[in-house]
Amino acid sequence: MFKHCVLILAFVIALPSFAVEPDEILDDPILETRARDISANVRCVVCQNEPIDSSNAGVARDLRLLIRERLVAGDSDDQVYDFLVARYGDYVLFKPPWRPSTYLLWLAPFLILGGGIIGMVYALMRKPQNPHAGLNADEQAQLDELIGSNNEGDAT
């Protein structure tokens, strides 16, 4: 029983592991939070789909330390991002900035959605062809003739 409890407890209190090492963490909790937020948004250039916050690569650690250094020196978050973008390009940001080269990227979902809505409205607004609409004059004449000849046949 005790063993099971320990096991369950171990699962419950298990926390996700982070690459941030104890010696990197700043004493000031506010700055540290900002640093964590920034590093969660910065791509590791070695292991490309990981943020530097959770990457064990050497460059990622260097960048984490650098971000903290700059924050301690009084940089704003934007200044830190600008510093990184100047060296590694927009590529290091997980959230690409709004600028002419990324307009299409940001707008594509809305364009596709808009196209879909227009298409649907068009399809729904189209006048449905009523299969039960009345006969036209030719058809009516033909029908009358058929019914007429039929009646005549009955009479005789």
Binding site: V45, V46, G58, V59, D62, L66, R87, Y88
Partner: peptide
Amino acid sequence: FSGRVGIEWGVSG
């Protein structure tokens, strides 16, 4: 040694 100049040059590896 610190890799700082590498970062200045945008070195990834």
